[in-house]
Each structure stands twice: as C-alpha cells, then as structure tokens.
Design a protein around this nucleic acid. Structure first.
Lengths: 194, 194, 194, 194
DNA sequence: TATGAATGAGTGTTCATTCAT
DNA sequence: CATGAATGAACACTCATTCAT
C-alpha cells in the first residue's frame, strides 16, 4: 500500500469517528454532512471525496461500531470459561456499547429506511453474526446443562431487547452505576436461562 | 355538543388515525403533512384547520396510542386476579401494541427531539403512568410473595425493553404466531420475577 | 330603504371599525381576515358576504378614515376665522388622526401595492381633496397677506410630511403631551408660512 | 485577506444591492427571496449561503443604506462651515437618499415588525446616530445665535418628517427638479430655525 | 485533495378565497 | 346570513449533492 493510500484510509477513519459522534448526538436523519465536516474543520464538499454519499457514510458508521462490538464479543468466547462466565462478560460488553455508542450501535429502528438494499443486506449479516455469538454461548450452556430453556432464540432476543432499551433510560448520574447495572442485568439473564 | 362539533371531532380522529398509520410507516420525521393528508384525500393545508402544526399532530398521535394502551392495561388490574395472571394479561396487551402500533407506540428514541417542552412533559407523565401500572403489579406480587426480586424497577425496565424490541424482529409470517410469542414472553417474565 | 338593508349597512360599518382597529395594529398586510372577523366573534367566511375581498375591505377602511378626517377638517373652514386660526385647528385635527388612527390614516407608503387601480384612483381623489383643504387655507392666508410664501404646494407637503411623521416617534408617555405637541407644531407651521 | 474571501464579500455586496433594489420596489414584506435571487440569476437556496435568513438580509439592507447615509452626512460636518451651510448640505443628502433609496432608507413604519430584537437595537442605535448629526448642527447654530428655536428636538423631527415624506409624492418628471426641491426645502428649514 | 459556491427538490406553514349546508 | 371546512398558491428555509478551480 502506498503512503498516500494509507493517509487516505486514516482520513476516512477520522471522518468516520467524527460522524459516529454526530450520529450519536442527533441520530442518522438529524446528522448533517455540514456538522460532520465541521467537527473535523473540513467542508462538507470534501466528504464526498471519501464517501459516495450520506447513506454510505452512515452505513460505514454503523458497520464500524458493529464490527468493533463483534470483535470485543469474540474475545470473551473461548474454551476455558463456563457459558455463564462468558455470557456475563458479553453482557458487560453489550451494555457498554449500548450506553456509550447510543445511536450508531442502536440496532436501529427501521434500518431499511436508513440503508439501501446492499447495505441492509450487509448490516443484517453483521447483526446475525453478532446475535450468533450470543446464541453460541447459550447453546454451549444448554449442552453443558448449565442452562435450561425451551426457545433459545426467543430468549436471546428477549435478552438483547432488554439491554438495547437501557440507552433510553440510563442516567450516568442515577442511583446505580453502569457497573452495578451490568451486574444486575447479568444476574437476571442467568436467572432467566437457568 | 352540537352536531357540527361532533363531526369535527370525528374528522380530527380520522386525521389522527391516518397520521398514526403514516408515522408507523415512516417514523415521526419521515412522515410528511402531505402524505398524511393524501391518505385522507385532503390537501395538507386542511390539516392546519384541525392541528396547530406538525408537532402538535405528532404529539397527539403518540398521546392517543399511549392513552389507549394505558386504558387497556388498567382493565387488567383488579382485586380478584393474582399478580401473575394480571401480569400475563398486561404482557399480552403491551406486545399487541408494540407489534400493531409500531412507531407511535415506540417509547421513542430521543423524544426531546420530536416533542416540545410542554408535550415532552405530558408524554413523560403518560409514560410514567404506563410503567407505574407494571410496577404496581410487580409490587403486588412481591407483597404476596409470589415474586422475589431485588430491584423491581430495573426488572420492570428489563421487561419493557425486551418487549419493545419485539417490533424490530417480529415477523407475522414467522415460525411463532403472535399468540405463542405472548405466551413465551409471559413465561419468561414470570420466571424472571419468581 | 328596507330594514334588512339598514341592518346590513350597520353590520358593514361594524366590520369596518373592527378592521380599522386591526389594521392600525398590524398594518394592511399584517391584518388577516381571520383576526378581523374574530374581533367581532364572526368567522372569516362571513366577511365575504359584506366585502368582495380583502382589498375591498382595506380600501373601505382607508376611505372611511380619510372621509372622516376630511369632514372634520371642513368644520374648521369658514368665513369668520382668520387663516391662521383655521390652520391651527386643522393641524390639531390632522395630528389627532395621525396619532389616533395610525395605519389607516397613514397616507400610505406604496398605496399602489395595497389598492387596485380603481381604488387607487378614488383614494388619490380623496387625498387631493384632503390636501386641497390645506391649500385653500394657505391661499386665503396669502391673499390676506397673513402668509408670505413662494411655493405654497411644496409648503403644504412640507407641513403634512412633518405631521405624518409624528406617528413614528410619538410616545403618549413622553415629555410632551399631545396637546403641547399640537401647539408647537402649529407655531412652527405659522412661522414657516409667515 | 485571501482572494476568495474578497470575492465572497463582493458577492455578498452584490446580493445586498440586488435586495435593496427589490425592497425599494416591493417593501420588506413584499420582497421574496426568490425575486432577489432571480435578479442576480441565482436560485434562492444560494442566498442562504451568504445570509442566515431573510430577516438577516433585510436588516443588512437597511443597515447598509443607513450607514452610507450617516457617512455622507458626516462629510458635511466640519469646523469651517457655518451651521446654515452645513445644514443645507445635509438636507441635500437626506433628500437624495429619501428619493433614491426609497424603502430601504425609509425610517420604517413598524420596524419591530420587520426586525428582531438585536437587529432592532442596532437599527435604533444607527437612527439615533443619524438624527444626532442633525441635532449637532442645530445645536451649533443655536450657540452661534444663527438659529433661534425653543424645541430643537421637535424641530429636528419636524424637518426629518417633512423630508421623509417627499418619497410619497416626488415625481422625477414633475414641475420641479430634485435640485430645485432641495433648494426650497433648505430655505424652508432655515426659515423655520431662524 | 480540498473548497467555495451553487443548486433544486422537498417540507412546514400561512392565508385569502370559495362554497355547500 | 353565517359558518365550517377545504383548497391551493405562495413563501421561507434546509440539505444532500455537484463541480469547477
């Protein structure tokens, strides 16, 4: 890879991070190319050198965060730990993303409104990937008899839903710290699965 | 009340229902006055005869659905039934709304973006009202020793979150019918609380 | 004239007075049919029974006030009084109208924008009429050698302009009362003409 | 300053001049962004690149003309000339602006309707500035005993009013040329003040 | 590469006007 | 006579997108 290409990639990433910030603040629709560019002291025209259009940029934002989350989740999956341990770690990660990344992690309302066909396909693939990791661990728990549950898929969606909702009500200055919350949610999940 | 006033109220309701439909389709921001009017074979100008502005219309949509939901929930609360029975019924109702009403019931992302100050205040009041009904039943279950749980508020949010998420993945043609889903969710909730 | 016609005329006058009030408050463009009607607890649709359109109503407002002013001016013109006395009285009247009637008496900026061709013609006739009364008195003063001035028409416009401007700066709570103002303006006018 | 900035400023000025033309033709309310843009073969969207909104543009129009007028007035104020000479020159300038710039110079009816709070404040400051220059010269005439007048502020408003009115009746093809008019008005003013 | 500038389609809102009842 | 209701044209404003330099 040439130096110039490297530079370009770096810039692209910078823009992406700036965009993520704005999207988390104002949502996909509320984010304007102007504001994203301003964050980096650029002009909106320049964004089109790196991204085909707004949709593309938005898609890559979501993709970036989602991929990051997948990577972090994978780190918790291994042979040594028990299903319960792994799941508790995954819950911590998910809640971290839900609270910290807000909108871009939001496994969005009406994704077909924000993304085009190809993007949507890719997004759905990633999400399947993401959910699959949870399924995998639940499956492991089931085969080791640690968990007992009839509809594991529904249970997984049940769990993810409850965690995604956190961003609607979480208050950093609230009675419970993020850590305590993660602990409680872990407990509930385990209780649910056992 | 005069006949003409009745008629006007009816029209207002018609518009509201039409708006709810559009909002459920495209979200609050995506809904245009034009499309809402077109649904009723009117012109957008006419909408302003009944509603002060788009914000007002959107607010009343949300208010309408939320109030309906509250009313239905209340029907399930009484002295005879056990906390478990009541809760199961409430879950059925909530899932019905989440699936059927989609966006307008969606206990929205960034409500302060969609609603103005006064509207927001009213909306938050209604939501508190709504959640309060769940809290009430959980409380009853706790005092009758039917439920055992340490953080009832968190549990309630856990439950509501999992149900709100349903609209993201529910597929009417899927393996499980809505009814089956409601049953399973009920079971999970009870397991969680016991 | 039939009773019904009399009634209709009365209603027309009521509307006119209401319209004058609104116009004085918001200007010709700023006045809305809605507000004018509301002032009389009517609905705007009804106004069209009495007036062809907004332009017509606006025109008749101006016409009404202007005619009233002409009538009052005429009362000051007679054989006995000196030109100076008559002029002083006319100044008092003019200033009264300028301050009290504001916009409707405003011998308007861009009348061709507010009025149509025929209306404009009529308005210009009335205004000529109005100015003519001042000219008449100035003429009288000139022939009686009470006044000495070379360009009486210009002088008259000079005088009217200075008085019309009063409504831009007059403050009822200011240092000078309306009466004092009228006196001072009278003095200045006489000084100018002598 | 960079070349591009200079260019931008120039464009801004062009737009301003175009806007002034349109406003003089149709008034502040009557001027549409569309028409202003069309005058320069632009589309209205482009105007918003240079001005925040219509109010801003309108304000800057008025500000521009008023500032220009103040500058020209100031050129007539100096130590050598007599108060009378200076005043005659100022009258010429004022009448020039009143006739040539019409609406934008019009020391407007209901400015609080056209301008927002901050703009209004600035406008009023400029106007005070403007009137103050006249007051200054009158004051000078009074202290040199060239003028004798009891209420100099009222006299100044008397004078400005008479001149502002000129734009209502001035006809370039009339009996008197602008120059002759300016001479006559000067004479009247001096007569008034002496 | 980056930018300044321009565009045009879209959207909410206002309001005079019309008309059946 | 009066009204409720509907209309449609007009207008300010936003914003993604384009493109010459």
């Amino acid at each position: 890879m040439k130096l110039s290409e490297k530079k370009s990639l770096k810039k692209k990433e910078q823009i992406l991070l700036s965009a993520v910030k704005i999207v988390n603040r104002h949502g996909y629709d509320g984010a304007t190319m102007e504001e994203i560019a301003a964050e980096l002291l650029m002009t909106k025209g320049s964004l089109y050198y790196y991204f085909k259009n707004k949709g593309d940029l938005m898609y890559q934002c979501h993709n970036l965060i989602l991929s990051k989350a997948i990577d972090e989740l994978k780190e918790h999956i291994n042979e040594e730990d028990s299903a319960e341990e792994m799941l508790r770690n995954m819950i911590i990660t998910h809640i971290d993303f839900a609270i910290e990344e807000q909108e871009t992690f939001n496994l969005i309302t009406r994704p077909y409104h924000t993304f085009n066909k190809e993007q949507l396909q890719e997004v759905l693939k990633l999400r399947k990937n993401y959910s699959g990791l949870f399924d995998q661990v639940i499956e492991k728990g089931l085969s080791s008899k640690a968990f007992k549950i009839k509809e594991p898929i529904i249970a997984r969606m049940f769990m993810l839903g409850s965690m995604n909702w956190i961003q609607q009500w979480y208050n950093p200055d609230g009675r419970l710290s993020k850590k305590e919350l993660q602990k409680i949610f872990g407990d509930y999940m385990i209780k649910l699965l056992k």
